[in-house]
Structure formats: C-alpha cells, structure tokens
Amino acid sequence: MSAPFDVIFREIVSGGMSTALNMLKILIPLMIIVEILMVYNVMEKVADKLQFLAGALGMQKQSIFPLLVGVVMGVTYGAGTLIEINRKMPIPKKDYALIGIFMFICHGIIETGFIFAVAGAEIFTITVGRLVIAFLVTAAAARLPVFRKMSEKTEEN
C-alpha cells in the first residue's frame, strides 16, 4: 500500500459522502423534470415537431416518439415506450433496430449531461457531440442493405 490506512479510510468516507450528496443534488431536480415531462405529455408534443427527421433516419413517423423518450430520458423509459407504441401502432423491425442503434449510442442526455458536467466534462461535446454521432451512424445504417431488407416486416410481441 502506497498510503497509510487512515488516509485511505478518510478518503473513502469523505469521497463517499460527497458522492452521495452530488447524487441527491442531481437526481432530485432530474426526477422532477422527468415527472413534469411525463405528466404534461411534453415528449409527445416535441416528437410531433420532429417528424421530419424520420425520413433522414429511415424510420416511420411513429418511431420518433419512443426514440425521443429514450434519447432524452434513458433506455428504460425508451424501451417501455417502444413496447407501448408497438401495441397501438406496429413498428417495423427495421425501425426497432435503428432506434436501438441511436438509443444505445446516445441516451439519457438530460441525466448524463448533468452528471458529467458536474464532474467536469465539456457539456457541449457530451450532449450535442453525442447526438450528432448517433444521428450520423443511424442515418448511415438505415442505408445499409441489411437494414433495407428488413424494411416492411413488423415485430410481433
């Protein structure tokens, strides 16, 4: 060990406490925002305005809403919404894969933007940079033959 035991112990206690405080500082406002977005159906309204992106991403229009939820709030919410929407309005298999690609590169931007900005990262890079990368990768993937072939089939579940 390159430090005495009491130094290590003190670092664990003080670091652990500041980690706990930081988390509360972030998660309480974050969850309030998420709750407001849900209760007032903000996501649906924004998704309506973003319909024009569907073409560039090679998706159907109804796929934009679950994608937006996943990207803004997190994969768990996104996956939940995707399953929900699919029940009402079947989403093609191709869109499932494309939403997956986009959503798993870039999700929970409010939450991760918050926490990594507090930790000292460049906030512009980690939010806008990630969105741009995810958008380009997804748009490119949509044009690959593998994805084109899946186009019209819908997922059964």
């Binding site: 998660l27 309480i28 974050l30 969850m31 309030i32 925002i33 998420v34 709750e35 209760v39």
Partner: peptide, 11 residues
C-alpha cells in the same frame, strides 16, 4: 403533486 412525486423518485 408532480414536483413532490419527482422529488420522492429522486431520493
């Protein structure tokens, strides 16, 4: 109520 629920979820 929304704010309260959000805060509880945060904790």
């Amino acid at each position: 109520a929304t704010i309260r629920d959000g805060a509880i979820k945060g904790v």
